[in-house]
């Protein structure tokens, strides 16, 4: 298995995690093209999550701007309210095939945690969600939903008490319980093979969009605009169009207090700095500090944390 995307990617994890990653690589290689596995995944996407999602013509928005016909790919109509369920279903099915009885996940805003808690309940698996104490306070409703679904929400107090600390703590828990635990990562980050797994389980968004576009307008879209956080939504919709140069792709992030303040989620311009975030080689933050990472991308299976990120992401397929 190729573990790199150009100079990015890899497996920067402690030795204690390596056996689990090797087991995962082997299982993913076995099932990613397995007809039975893919058929079961597709069935759950259709009968449980609610795929295909609508391609909705936003008439008022189109009139408002008067420049392009605007359509919305309604991932919000999926069960649990976000695209996160696609990947969570795929990985839970993989975990089941691997004989794992417990799934864990990290979550920031709570969407990925809710999706993971949901699939764990569906398949009768134990579930632990790691969440920073700051985020638990900010996202009470999602914490309630996870608990309602039978998950244990583990408050993470170390470091800054936010997503990156929850991720570290989830990896620590995983490394301690590797034999019976599967770690469901929700973003296109982490050590190989995770970015590829998340991409493969999210690419259904773009595949569907292609079919819907051809049916509806007899051609592909001129532009695709996707929000980028951890990258799974953008990767999911862009990936099937990676070789269609005529389809222009835009990733969008929240502007926060403004471009020059540093208090924003901007990820797509400037010069990056190489480093390692969430156990995969990527571009990132300053010495000793994780606080201001941004995400950037050019193309493919992993998204890249950069301090001031010029997009630089490779597609190897």
């Amino acid at each position: 298995m190729n573990k790199r995307f150009g100079k990015y990617g890899g497996q920067f994890v402690p030795e204690t995690v390596m056996p689990a990653l090797m087991e995962l690589e082997q299982a993913f290689a076995q099932y990613k093209n397995d007809a039975n596995f893919l058929a079961e995944f597709k069935t759950y996407l259709q009968k449980y999550a609610g795929r295909p999602t609508l391609l909705y013509f936003a008439e008022n928005l189109t009139k408002h701007y008067g420049r392009a016909k605007i359509y919305l790919k309604r991932e919000d109509l999926l069960h649990t309210g976000a695209h996160k369920i696609n990947n969570a279903l795929g990985q839970a099915l993989l975990a089941k095939r691997m004989g794992k009885r417990r799934v864990i996940a990290e979550t920031g805003a709570g969407q990925h945690g809710v999706a993971t808690a949901t699939v764990a309940a569906l398949f009768g698996m134990e579930c632990k969600i790691f969440m920073g104490v700051e985020d638990i306070e900010r996202q009470k409703l999602n914490v309630f939903r996870m608990k309602l679904l039978g998950a244990e929400v583990v408050p993470v107090t170390c470091g800054t008490g936010t997503l990156k600390d929850a991720t570290s703590e989830a990896i620590r828990y995983w490394s301690t319980n590797i034999t019976d635990t599967y770690y469901i990562i929700g973003s296109v980050v982490g050590p190989a093979p995770y970015p590829e797994i998340v991409r493969d389980f999210q690419k259904c968004i773009g595949v569907e969009l292609r079919e819907q576009s051809l049916n509806e307008f007899g051609k592909l879209p001129d532009y695709i605009v996707a929000c980028v956080g951890g990258g799974s939504n953008a990767m999911g919709i862009f990936y099937d169009f990676k070789d269609d140069a005529a389809v222009k792709k835009f990733g969008v992030e929240a502007g926060g207090r403004g471009e020059d303040t540093g208090d924003n989620a901007k990820t797509l311009s400037g010069a990056g700095r190489p480093g390692f975030a969430d156990a995969a080689g990527s571009s990132c933050r300053g010495l000793f500090s994780f606080s201001r990472f941004r995400l950037s991308w050019r193309w493919s299976g992993t998204f890249i944390f950069q301090r001031r990120g010029r997009c630089e992401l490779r597609c190897r397929d």
Binding site: K7, F12, A271, G272, R273, P274, G275, F276, S283, C284, G286, L287, F288, R310, E312
Partner: peptide, 17 residues
């Protein structure tokens, strides 16, 4: 950890490995 070492003496640019 690897980030500490990679960042040592960093002075700019995107390929400071």
């Amino acid at each position: 950890y690897i980030n500490n070492f990679m960042s040592y003496g960093y002075s700019g640019g995107s390929a400071a490995y």
